Amino acid sequence: MLDTQNVSIRSASVGSMDNNVYVLTAKNSGDQVLIDAADDFARIQEVLDAGAGDLYGGVSQASVRMIITTHSHWDHVRALAEAAEATGARTAAGSEDIADIPVPTDVPLKHGDVLDFDGFDLEVIGLRGHTPGSVALLFRDPDGPAHLFTGDSLFPGGVGNTQKDPARFSSLINDVIERIFEYLPDDTIVHPGHGAGTTLGAERPHLAEWKERGW
């Protein structure tokens, strides 16, 4: 668990693909956001309940306001229907991926959107290439480094899989460089869709290498 002054950030690895799911909870209001209802809703519910335990200021109950899907691949949506039904939360995803997500999407997202919750905002960063509508979500902690939830578009050691398609790789690497590395500072914490996290500072020296190798 990562604790900021106003928001707690919890994660869990779920399913056969070891997908990371993330829950952000505003301590003052109880607003929660679930990023990638990938699998195992029982485990996700445990993470939501743990976040609710952080509340203070007289808040009696946490409320899941939105479930955001970073991209449409099957391993990131296996618990989406169950999570949406159980929580009543709105669903959101990149507009170009909506047709491939097997649950209706309430809020289509595009690059530059800002999602306003009671206690924090999330900025939408479009990262085209892993899928056409892949998005990252940026939480700016006013008292510490920013937190960037990148789905499968950026990992320690490289960008997401583009199946050796030069056009898709070019699109993704260019978006990652222009919309992330040229936009955010080195202390930004990266929370990927699988595996361990990293920082932009740790990855920045390798950008030319990634571009040269083509994956």
Rank of each mutant, 00 (worst) to 15 (best):
R78L: 13
L24P: 09
I68S: 15
V77I: 15
A89G: 07
D75G: 07
A50H: 02
G94H: 14
L34H: 01
Q45K: 12
E85G: 04
V21I: 15
K110E: 13
D75S: 14
H71N: 14
V114P: 02
I101D: 01
L24E: 08
K110P: 01
H76E: 10
L115Q: 12
A62Q: 10
S29G: 03
T69F: 02
L55N: 06
W74S: 12
D39S: 06
T87F: 13
D75M: 11
S95F: 13
A52S: 14
V23K: 07
I101K: 01
G58M: 04
A26N: 05
L115F: 11
V107N: 10
E46V: 05
T69V: 12
E96T: 01
A92G: 11
S95A: 15
A26R: 06
H71R: 05
D97K: 10
H111S: 14
R65C: 08
A92L: 10
D36W: 04
G58W: 10
A62G: 15
V114C: 03
A79L: 03
T25E: 12
L34F: 06
A52N: 12
I98A: 06
E85I: 04
A52F: 03
R90C: 07
T105D: 01
E85T: 09
G94T: 12
V107E: 14
L24D: 07
Y56P: 02
H73G: 02
S95R: 15
V107I: 15
G58L: 06
V33S: 10
I101C: 11
G94W: 07
N28P: 01
V47I: 15
L80H: 04
Q61G: 07
L55F: 13
Q32N: 06
D116F: 09
V64Q: 02
H71I: 06
A38L: 04
K27C: 05
M66C: 13
I67L: 15
L80A: 03
P108W: 13
A37F: 00
V59H: 09
G58D: 06
S63R: 13
A42G: 13
S72A: 12
F41R: 00
V64T: 14
A89Q: 04
V77D: 00
A62P: 11
L80F: 07
V23H: 10
E96P: 02
V77K: 00
L24S: 08
G58A: 07
I67W: 08
D116Q: 12
T70P: 06
A62L: 09
V23D: 01
V21N: 00
D36S: 15
G58P: 05
A37W: 00
G53M: 12
R90F: 09
G58I: 04
I98C: 13
M66T: 09
T25K: 05
V103S: 07
Q45D: 12
A86M: 08
A26D: 06
L34A: 08
V114R: 09
I101P: 00
D39N: 09
L48T: 00
L80V: 08
R65G: 05
G94Q: 12
Q45G: 06
R43G: 02
A42W: 07
H111Q: 06
W74I: 08
A42K: 14
G53T: 11
K27M: 11
A93Q: 02
G58R: 04
Q45M: 02
V59N: 10
E96W: 04
